[in-house]
């Protein structure tokens, strides 16, 4: 590979990276907004029946952002990884469901 070619590839690569970084910053801004909404909803003393599902959904979306953008699970080559993470999430969900329903208090 000639030097010029490498430079060309590099500049293309850098362009791509910059774009990606822009997405990351947008992701971050959204996460901060979600966090703010959750805290304000609780701080404002909203009704319990609405606020709990709301903050849980906000948390789930935020975590989705972390996994897919910050941790790059959206990228290629993450198929095995995501199936295992979803496996873990499934077992996590079943565990939490159990402990909030059938621990016999």
């Amino acid at each position: 590979m000639t030097g010029a070619n490498i430079n060309k590839i590099n500049s293309f690569k850098k362009q791509k990276q910059k774009e990606e970084m822009k997405h990351q910053v947008i992701t971050f801004a959204l996460m901060i907004i979600f966090t703010l909404v959750a805290f304000i909803a609780v701080g404002a003393g909203m009704n319990k029946t609405y606020v709990i599902p709301l903050i849980l959904i906000l948390a789930l979306v935020q975590v989705g952002f972390q996994f897919y953008y910050f941790m790059h699970m959206k990228d290629k080559g993450h198929e095995v990884i995501s199936s295992l993470i979803y496996g873990g999430i499934w077992i996590a969900a079943v565990t939490v469901l159990t402990f909030t329903t059938i621990i016999w208090w």
Binding site: L84, I85, G87, G88, I89, I91, A92, A93, T95
Partner: peptide, 8 residues
């Protein structure tokens, strides 16, 4: 993946 179950 294991840590997910641990924290869960």
């Amino acid at each position: 993946g294991g840590e997910t179950v641990l924290f869960a």
